[in-house]
Design a protein around this nucleic acid. Structure first.
Length: 817
RNA sequence: GCCCAGGUGGCGGAAUGGUAUACGCUGCGGCCUUAAAAGCCGCUGCCAGUAAUGGCUUGCGAGUUCGAGUCUCGCCCUGGGCACCA
C-alpha cells in the first residue's frame, strides 16, 4: 500500500486551495457571519515561531469548522510591520526597513501558507503600506479634531537604548519592554492621546465581554478606578511662610479614599515635584527641602518606587489647618507621594495606613486612632485598616465606617472644603516616537497658524525614502534632518511651515486593522460602513496574553473614539477573546536564540509535515496553558496520522456505500462527532484530538465498514489535519473539497446504547460492574446487583439502609452503621 | 503586601458532584528481522498477592454529601499580574 507522504500531498493541496479561492470570504448576507481573527504577526527576521503555529492553527481550526457548519466566515491576516526590531536590524544589515519588511513578509506568508492556514489572502493588509497608513493617519486627525490628541512637554519614559519615548504600558519594572534597558525620565515635547477621557467607558465595557477573567482583571487594575474625596486644607496664617504666598490664602488639595479617617490626620504630605513646594517652604527649611527634592530627582523610577526601602521626607516648615478641628498640621515633602496620582498630596492618617504609619514612626509624628474594630474595645494593633466604628471623631463617634464617611463628607461639603472624586491610575497615552519606521504624524507646525492638520486630500503623509534613519538620541526623530521633507507649505496660509517629525508607536496600526479587513481595498474610506456593519464585531479573537493591556486596551479606546466620531457604530471590537499559552522550549524555558532551545517550524514540517505540526501544537495540552515542546510526543501524533492513512485506504477498498446502521461503530462515530464538535466550539482542541484517536483505535480493528463511516470520520478530522483529510477524501471518490462539504451531525437517540455498564457500589466503594438493558427497571437492577458475588459479600456485612440509584450512571448500597 | 490561575501516574494531560488516571509519550515483554530502524501485539498509578482480590491514591488539614479531583473553610507550594496608587 502506498505510504503516507505529506511532503508530496501537502504542497499539492495548498496550491489547490489557493487556486480555487476556497478561503475567500464573500460579503454574503444569506448565511450567518462569523469573524474569526487572530492577532496578526509582526514579521520579524526570525521567521515564524512555533508559538505562531499554535495560535494560528487554533483559529484556523475554528474557521474551518465554522465554514463547514454553514457560516460565512471571515478569517483574514496581515502584517503589523512598523516598529523598532525591523528598524534596528535594518540599520544593522544596511537594508532599508521597507525592503526588509518585504522580505520578512514574503517568508512569513510562505510559512503560514505551508501550515495550511485558511486565510483569505485577498484581504491581506500591511500596516506599513501607504494605502493602509493613510487611514491610520486619517484616524489620528479625527482624534486630533475631537481634542483627543494634544501636544505636551512632559517628563516621559525614555529608553536610552532604543533612543525613543515609550508609553507607560511599554515600561515593565522600570525597564523598556522591548530591550530591557532601564528607562529614564526625560521632559520632551510629545503628542499624547487622551485615553483617560475614556477610562470609565473602558472599565464599563469590560462587563459584557466573553474574555478570560484574568485579562479583564488586568485591564481593570490597569485603569485602576478609585472612589474617594478631594479635601482642601488651608495654609495656617500664623505659620512663617513667605508673605507673598500668605496673601493668596494658599490651599493644598489632597485626595483620599477614606475621608472618614480625617480626625486621624496628623500631617500632610506633598510630592517633591508638587508646584507648591517652592512656595510654602519656610526660609529655615529651604535648604533641607531643596536638597531633598534634588536628591529625589536623581533617583531612578525603580529606586524611587521600591516598596521595601525606608521612607524619607523633610518638613517644609509650613502648617495647614485641619478643616474640622482647625488644628495646625505640619506639611512634609516625601517621595512616597506621587505627583502623577490623585492631587499629588495626601492627608496622612498614620493609625490606619501602613505607609503613613511607617513614616510617622520614623519622624515622631503623632498617631491618632480613629477607628476601633469593636466599639468599646479601642485597642487595635496599629496600623489598622479594617472595618469598625469611629472613635476620637467628635460628633461622629460610634458611627460605622460607611455611615461615618457619609456624615463626615456632609460636614466637609457644608463647609465647601471637600467634594467626591473618582481618580484613575490610567495615564494618557504617550503617542509619539522619535524613530523613523512608523507612521508620520500628519500635522504641520506653522509659525503663524500654529498646529495645522494635513488636509485629508494630502493623505497619506508618506515616509520619505532616505538612507539615514538612525535614531538621533536628541529627542528629535531622524525625519527632522530631512529638510526637503520637513519644509512644507502651510495649508492655511502662504508661509512655509514645518512637518511634525515624530512618528506613531507600533500600536497605532494594530488599533484598527480589524476594521480594514472588512473592506481592505477601499480608497474612499477606511472601510465602507455597510461592510463594517455586516462583519463586526470580531466574534472570535485569539492572541497572546502579553497584549492584555497594550493592544487590547488601545484598540478598545480607538473604537470608542471612532464611534463618538460617527465613523462606526461599534462599542466593543472583540466579543469573544481566548488567550494562548506560551510554547516553551524542550528544557521548559522560554524559547530564545541565546538559550539555543528554539524549535523551528520549518524543520518540523520538513520532517513530519504540516498536519503533524498542527495536530501536535493542539495536542500538547489545553490551548490556554503554556507547555514545553516535546519531540517524542510529535512522533506520537505523526504515528496517528500514518495509521489513519493506512486504515482509511484499507477500509476504502472493502467498504461499500450503505445506509447508516446502528452498530457499536455507528454509536461511537456519532459520539465522536459530538465530542469533536463541542470540544472545537469550546477551544478544547486537545480533547477533540483524543476523541478522534479513540475512534480511530476502534475503526482500525474493523474488517470492513460502510463508506459513510469513513467519510464522516474524515470530515471531522479535516479542520485539524486538513491536508491528509483532503487527500483521503478525494481517494474516497469525492469530487468536491472537504471545505465545501457540510459538517456531519449526530442523533441523540443513537447515542443511547441499548445495554449499559453500570457500576455498583457498596458504601460508595466500587464492588462490581453489571451490564443491564438501558430500559430495565430499578427493581431489576437492584436484584441483578445483589446477585453479584462481590456485592453480596459486602452486603452480608450489614443491613441496607438506603439504595441510591442514578439512572444510567450508578447504583450505591448504603449500609447501616 | 494585594489580585488571578493552577497543584491528578515516570512525563504531557482527561474527567456535567457519580467507575479517577481517557488520549498520547516513556518504560517493560513479545512478534517480525541476519541485525537495527520502522511497524505490529500485550502490560504499565502505588503497596500486598501466583491469582482472584484487597488496601491506598488527585498538594496538606477539616467540613458538606449516600458519594468530592470537582462544592465550602483554613493552610502550603508553583506560575502570572499589580504594587509607596493614598
Amino acid at each position: 500500500m502506498e505510504s503516507y507522504n505529506p511532503q508530496v500531498l501537502e504542497p499539492k493541496w495548498q496550491q489547490y486551495w489557493l487556486d480555487n479561492r476556497l478561503f475567500a470570504a464573500a460579503d454574503d448576507t444569506h448565511k450567518k457571519k462569523m469573524y474569526v481573527l487572530d492577532m496578526f504577526p509582526y514579521p520579524s527576521g526570525d521567521g515564524l515561531h512555533v508559538g505562531h503555529a499554535k495560535i494560528y492553527t487554533a483559529s484556523d481550526i475554528v474557521a474551518r469548522y465554522l465554514r463547514m457548519k454553514g457560516f460565512n466566515v471571515l478569517h483574514p491576516t496581515g502584517w503589523d510591520a512598523f516598529g523598532l526590531p525591523t528598524e534596528n536590524s535594518a540599520i544593522k544589515l544596511g537594508i532599508h526597513p521597507a525592503e526588509l519588511t518585504k522580505r520578512n513578509v514574503a517568508r512569513f506568508r510562505q510559512q503560514m501558507q505551508r501550515l495550511g492556514l485558511s486565510y483569505d489572502w485577498e484581504r491581506e493588509i500591511n500596516t506599513t503600506d501607504p494605502q493602509y497608513y493613510k487611514w491610520t493617519q486619517w484616524i489620528f486627525l479625527r482624534l486630533y479634531k475631537m481634542g483627543l490628541a494634544y501636544e505636551a512637554t512632559v517628563p516621559i519614559n525614555w529608553c536610552p537604548s532604543c533612543l525613543t519615548g515609550l508609553a507607560n504600558e511599554e515600561v515593565v519594572d522600570g525597564k523598556c519592554e522591548r530591550c530591557g534597558t532601564a528607562v529614564e525620565q526625560r521632559p520632551l515635547r510629545q503628542w499624547m492621546l487622551r485615553i483617560t477621557r475614556y477610562a470609565d467607558q473602558l472599565l464599563q465595557g469590560l462587563g459584557g465581554l466573553d474574555w478570560p477573567q484574568f485579562i479583564i482583571e488586568l485591564q481593570q487594575n490597569w485603569i485602576g478606578r478609585s472612589e474617594g474625596a478631594e479635601i482642601i486644607f488651608t495654609l495656617d496664617q500664623s505659620s512663617a511662610v513667605n508673605p507673598q504666598a500668605m496673601a493668596e490664602k494658599l490651599t493644598i488639595k489632597v485626595f483620599t479614599t477614606r475621608p472618614e479617617t480625617i480626625y486621624g490626620a496628623t500631617y500632610v504630605v506633598v510630592a517633591p515635584e508638587h508646584p507648591l513646594v517652592g512656595v510654602i517652604t519656610t526660609p529655615q527649611q529651604r535648604e533641607a527641602v531643596t536638597t531633598y527634592v534634588a536628591q529625589t530627582k536623581q533617583r531612578t523610577e525603580v529606586e524611587r518606587t521600591d516598596v521595601t526601602k525606608e521612607k524619607t521626607g523633610v518638613f517644609t516648615g509650613a502648617y495647614v489647618l485641619h478643616p474640622l478641628t482647625h488644628e495646625p498640621l505640619p506639611v512634609w515633602v516625601a517621595d512616597y507621594v506621587l505627583l502623577a496620582y490623585g492631587t499629588g498630596a495626601i492627608m496622612a492618617v498614620p493609625a490606619h495606613d501602613e505607609r503613613d504609619f511607617a513614616f510617622a514612626t520614623k519622624y515622631n509624628l503623632p498617631i491618632v486612632q480613629v477607628i476601633s474594630p469593636v466599639l468599646g474595645k479601642d485597642q487595635a494593633e496599629l496600623p489598622y485598616s479594617g472595618d469598625g466604628v469611629l472613635i476620637n471623631s467628635d460628633q461622629s463617634d460610634g458611627q460605622e465606617v460607611a455611615a461615618g464617611r457619609q456624615m463626615i463628607m456632609g460636614l466637609l461639603q457644608q463647609r465647601a472644603v471637600a467634594q467626591k472624586a473618582v481618580i484613575y491610575k490610567l495615564r494618557d497615552w504617550v503617542f509619539s516616537r522619535q524613530r523613523y519606521w512608523g507612521e508620520p504624524i500628519p500635522l504641520i507646525h506653522c509659525k503663524k497658524c500654529g498646529v495645522v492638520p494635513v488636509p485629508e486630500k494630502d493623505l497619506p503623509v508618506e515616509l520619505p525614502p532616505i538612507d539615514t534613519y538612525q535614531p538621533t538620541g536628541t529627542g528629535e526623530s531622524p525625519l527632522a534632518a530631512i529638510e526637503s521633507w520637513v519644509q512644507v507649505k502651510c495649508p492655511t496660509c502662504p508661509n512655509i511651515a514645518r512637518r511634525e517629525t515624530n512618528t506613531m508607536p507600533q500600536w497605532a496600526g494594530s488599533s484598527w486593522y480589524f476594521l480594514r479587513y472588512t473592506d481592505p481595498h477601499n480608497k474612499q474610506a477606511l472601510a465602507a460602513p455597510e461592510k463594517m456593519q455586516w462583519w463586526l464585531p470580531v466574534d472570535v479573537y485569539m492572541g497572546g496574553a502579553e497584549h492584555a493591556v497594550l493592544h487590547l486596551l488601545y484598540a478598545r479606546f480607538w473604537i470608542k473614539a471612532l464611534r463618538d466620531a460617527g465613523v462606526i457604530s461599534l462599542t466593543e471590537p472583540f466579543s469573544r477573546l481566548r488567550s494562548v499559552g506560551l510554547v516553551m522550549g524542550e528544557d521548559g524555558q522560554k524559547m530564545s536564540k541565546s538559550r539555543g532551545n528554539v524549535v523551528n517550524p520549518d524543520e518540523v514540517v520538513a520532517q513530519y509535515g504540516a498536519d503533524t505540526l498542527r495536530l501536535y501544537a493542539m495536542f500538547m495540552g489545553p490551548f490556554s496553558a503554556s507547555g514545553a515542546w516535546n519531540t517524542g510526543s510529535i512522533a506520537g501524533v505523526h504515528r496517528f496520522l500514518k495509521r489513519v492513512w493506512q486504515t482509511v485506504l484499507r477500509l476504502a477498498e472493502n467498504s461499500e456505500p450503505g445506509p447508516e446502521t446502528t452498530t457499536d461503530l455507528e454509536v461511537l462515530l456519532q459520539q465522536t462527532i459530538k465530542r469533536v464538535s463541542e470540544n472545537t466550539e469550546n477551544f478544547k482542541f486537545n480533547t477533540a484530538i483524543a476523541a478522534l484517536m479513540e475512534f480511530h483505535n476502534f475503526l482500525e480493528k474493523q474488517p470492513h465498514v460502510s463508506r459513510s463511516v469513513l467519510e464522516r470520520f474524515i470530515l471531522v478530522l479535516s479542520p485539524y489535519a486538513p491536508y491528509i483529510s483532503e487527500e483521503l477524501w478525494q481517494r474516497l471518490g469525492q469530487k468536491q473539497s472537504v471545505l465545501k462539504t457540510a459538517w456531519p451531525g449526530w442523533k441523540e437517540q443513537v447515542l443511547q446504547p441499548a445495554v449499559i455498564k453500570l457500576p455498583v457500589q457498596v458504601n460508595g466503594k466500587l464492588r462490581a460492574t453489571i451490564e443491564v438493558a438501558a430500559a430495565v427497571s430499578e427493581e431489576h437492577i437492584v436484584q441483578a446487583a445483589q446477585q453479584q458475588l462481590n456485592v453480596a459479600r459486602y452486603l452480608s456485612q450489614g443491613t441496607v439502609a438506603r439504595v441510591v440509584y442514578v439512572p444510567g450512571r450508578l447504583l450505591n448500597f448504603v449500609l447501616k452503621e
